[in-house]
Design a protein around this nucleic acid. Structure first.
Length: 576
DNA sequence: GCCGTTTTCGGCCCGACTGTTTTCAGTCG
């Protein structure tokens, strides 16, 4: 975790603790806002502090606490609160139906500071004696505990994407349904999601038909406008789905509201108030009179804002941009003219060139880079030099009759000393060289390896630069600023790896790299035919990083792309 | 604890739902 993430976590914990202790709710909110702001900063917080730069949402006091953290590695107030409140309390408060007040009661009366103790107290019947607890509340907490156990993990968005689309399609097919949209973090394309929010506009009551879906394993709530249930994913894990029934005239405002983020919504409502309106999920109102709400577009328009694409609604300054009509035209799926990372049978993929061509044709691509692994990466079928040469000949032959140009490429391993896994004479014959690191020793800092590798004039793209995996692996240790700086100087492209397990660079790093003037490529890392579809994730991620068509090289036509690569290589050779 | 060109004090997003109440508190999103 970097400073921003650690501080965000500390501030969240302080907020939880203050809430538990019954502190001023607005102070609690201030800590949560600050945590959110920190998580969304493209640069390390120390950079802003050093520049003495004001950050909206972080005032005098929190700024001092941040400085305290940067100097000492901790925050006194945080330490004090932690010593006052048992660790288990923080977990207890994550259980549905248990908020700070309930947690406090449980702790004060029964010393509940762990899930185990909570279970005992729930079974004992003693809770009924306490003012504020009734039979139903106790039942709800039991239910919440079950839910918590089942659902405490988040999902990588790509892991659940198709299941959710399938559910959406099912809902759309129900007679009388006019509109269905998945909102929430799914629509914002957060890299992980906890639950699914679906909005439905329908002429008649369809709750019975919704609940007929065979993958619904348990109904949590069923009201007139809201249905919640547990839904079994194709990997057999369970995810909570909340469905809301929306009236047509509120469709847009509800979509905005349920898309969030929460922090974005708060800022939007603030802005509405500033302009003399009230904004809620039912619409935009002036003196209780409905002004707009049928579509998102009309709400934004009435607020005199540019339309804000869902992916960037994260309270990271997008509202300011929208006020000034400065949101760039973000890249779209249709802009993509080819995939720049695909593995064939020659290394660890399963596709032959015909299969790759077939998938590419479906997507209207002009080209696909065949980026098989290099010799050192034995676990992934890395190709010996002779095999690579043979494969290249095969590709050339194939291209003579192919309707999609296969780029002769490779994902070349950056070795421990920063040298590349093939000699330059081989690299220069490739249309496109991706360089990447797969083998990293524990706690190794790979900055120097990257910097050394980037001295090679044939390195066109650094693939999955940080090495992180969405759910399961932290980024490798490296100085991103040094790497971005060098990439920018040497016109080296950074990849946005679209595989849902990677999503690397992530949105924040994209924002940061863009400030260095870096160009990006989007590659799916497809190893089989289904893998091609992940290009959508790459595009959404690029949008979340505010990228336009011009920032991404695989929006270029084949000839443009080839001459771009050539120009960059010549630039590197002449200049350095 | 943050913020501000009506304000440096006094506000702070807003509504649904539920449960335990008898007019409201807590939780959630």
């Amino acid at each position: 975790m970097n400073n921003n993430q650690i501080l965000a976590k500390i501030f969240e914990e302080i907020a939880d603790a203050l809430e538990f202790l019954g502190d001023n709710p607005f102070r609690v909110r201030a800590y949560r806002t600050a945590a959110n702001v920190l998580e969304g900063l493209p640069e390390d917080i120390s950079v802003y502090i050093n520049r003495n730069e004001k950050i909206y949402g972080i005032g005098e006091e929190l700024r001092e606490k941040i400085i305290e953290f940067l100097n000492t590695g901790k925050i006194k107030k945080h330490e004090e609160l932690l010593s006052k409140i048992p660790r288990g309390i923080f977990e207890i408060m994550k259980i549905p139906y248990i908020g700070p007040k309930t947690a406090k009661l449980l702790y004060d009366y029964f010393n509940v500071d762990s899930i185990e103790k909570l279970k005992k107290v729930l079974e004992s019947g003693q809770l009924l004696k306490i003012r504020g607890f009734g039979i139903k509340k106790i039942e709800n907490i039991k239910k919440g505990l079950e839910l918590y156990k089942k659902l405490s993990e988040r999902f990588a968005i790509g892991e659940v994407y198709q299941d959710i689309i399938n559910l959406k399609n099912y809902l759309s097919s129900i007679e009388g349904v006019e509109k269905v949209e998945v909102a929430g973090s799914f629509r914002r394309f957060k890299e992980t999601i906890g639950d699914v929010d679906i909005l439905i506009c329908s002429k008649r009551d369809i709750s019975e038909e919704i609940l007929k879906h065979p993958r619904i394993v348990e109904v949590i709530n069923k009201g007139e406008t809201k249905i919640s249930f547990l839904y079994e994913l194709s990997n057999h894990r369970l995810i909570q789905v909340d469905i809301r029934i929306i009236e047509e005239k509120s469709w847009g405002s509800a979509l905005m509201y349920f898309t969030g983020s929460k922090e974005h919504n708060i800022l939007m409502r603030d802005l509405a108030i500033e302009k003399g309106y009230k904004l809620n999920e039912y619409g935009l109102f002036k003196d209780e009179i409905y002004i707009a709400g049928k579509t998102e577009e009309e709400v934004f328009e009435k607020l005199n804002l540019q339309y804000i694409p869902p992916e960037i609604r994260e309270a990271r300054g997008e509202i300011e941009l929208a006020k000034n009509f400065k949101i760039p035209k973000l890249i779209e799926l249709e802009d993509i003219k080819g995939d720049l990372q695909v593995h064939s049978k020659y290394s660890d993929g399963v596709m032959d060139f015909w299969e790759i061509e077939a998938e590419a044709l479906k997507l209207n691509y002009e080209y696909v880079a065949i980026t098989d692994h290099s010799k050192s990466l034995k676990v992934a079928g890395g190709m010996e030099t002779e095999d690579l040469i043979r494969r290249n000949e095969e590709i050339k032959k194939f291209n003579k009759s192919s309707r999609v140009k296969l780029l002769i490429s490779a994902e070349v391993e950056i070795l421990n000393d920063g040298s590349l896994d093939y000699p330059d004479e081989i690299l220069k014959e490739l249309d496109l060289v991706l360089a990447s690191i797969h083998n990293v020793k524990k706690d190794e800092d790979i900055t120097e390896r990257y910097l050394k590798a980037m001295d090679n004039p044939y390195v066109d793209i650094i693939a999955h630069p940080t090495g992180r995996l969405v759910i399961s692996r932290e980024p490798y240790k490296m100085d991103l600023d040094k790497i971005f700086k060098k990439a920018s100087e040497r016109k080296i492209v950074l990849e946005i790896n679209a595989h849902y397990n990677r999503l690397d660079l992530n949105d924040l790093n994209i924002l940061k790299a863009k400030q260095y003037g870096i160009k990006f490529s989007i590659g799916t890392d497809a190893h089989n035919r289904a893998g091609f579809s992940m290009i959508l994730f790459g595009v959404k991620l690029a949008r979340k990083g505010l990228l336009t068509k011009d920032d991404v090289i695989n929006t270029l036509s084949l000839n443009e792309l080839l001459s771009y690569i050539k120009l960059c290589r010549e630039y590197r050779k002449s200049k350095f």
